[in-house]
Design a protein around this nucleic acid. Structure first.
Lengths: 164, 164
DNA sequence: TATTGTTATACTCTATAACTATA
DNA sequence: TATAGTTATAGAGTATAACAATA
């Protein structure tokens, strides 16, 4: 459902109760951020999913497909297609793990590193534009609050080990 | 892509750069909030879209389909199906506007009001659980910050008229 | 001719599960 | 038998545009 484009006419207001709901704002802003990202990444023919994969590979050299999927929370079947697209463009390489021939080891290529640099630039611009209504202190405060929520709802975001 | 269910195994960490990105956290948390809402609303056979429509009708008695779509940012074609579902359950009524027979006037029924009460209860519980890592002051601070962003990215959320 | 609501279509996303090859 | 990766399929969600009635 297209929720992004404001009408040009006098703007009809959302119900007050929705605007007062923090989870509603999170849903709408998350959607807006996603739409923005999809649009900006399009110039490289990639999506945020690809960026996340390249970032992960850039951090810890070689990963198996299963560990990539687990770390990013992606479905393994979906990951195959994403890696196919990255491999076709020569941004990553897959090769069999000689120790366990069921596994594929994936790694960044030189072109992948270059493309990652461009993606970082795009992502940085999106971040800065999206947060432009806030000053630096407010941005830090928002990030800290979101991180607290993410530790509960997205445990992969946790900075420190969970205490159950 | 299934991003909700944490694995039971030792949790693989997301790339640090993603966790440090506020827009990334907004996307993930917005998605998590959406999934949570969809699940909880299921017991009534409804979705958050229906809740938003009922809230809008509850605020300002009779609305045309076009004004509902504009206020909520929904596609008009999609709204038809949502209203069909609400009408089948007897939660809203549609009738032609005698002044302009192209228009349909939509209003809440008594059952609609009752169901809205139950939806408010569900939404309140979701809100409280989702924000449970934060105390009251932190929740207010987060809401205020998100509202600032929403005024830019979702003008319908604006509390005061825009100054262009 | 423009607008309101409706319907139909197509396209994207994603969830599921069957399949292979290795272990 | 269980696991890693692959492939195929179906379903939900949504965007687009054609359409009928009315202005």
């Amino acid at each position: 459902m297209n929720v992004t484009t404001p009408t040009s006419k006098p703007i009809e207001k959302l119900p007050q109760e929705l605007v007062e709901s923090t989870t509603f704002l999170l849903k709408r802003l998350g959607f807006a951020a996603k739409e923005r990202s999809l649009g900006e990444y399009e110039e490289l023919g990639l999506r945020p999913y690809h960026h996340a994969i390249l970032l992960l590979l850039d951090e810890g050299s070689r990963e198996t497909q299963g560990s990539i999927a687990d770390a990013l929370g992606y479905d393994r079947g979906q990951l195959v297609g994403l890696l196919d697209e990255l491999e076709e463009r020569g941004l990553v390489e897959r090769k069999r793990d000689p120790n366990d021939r069921r596994r594929h080891l994936v790694r960044l290529t030189g072109d992948g590193t270059k493309t990652l640099r461009r993606l970082r630039g795009i992502a940085g611009r999106i971040e800065d534009d999206f947060l432009s209504p806030l000053d630096d202190g407010e941005r830090a405060a928002l990030h800290a609050l979101l991180l607290r929520l993410a530790e509960k709802h997205e445990p992969r975001c946790a900075l420190l080990p969970q205490q159950p």
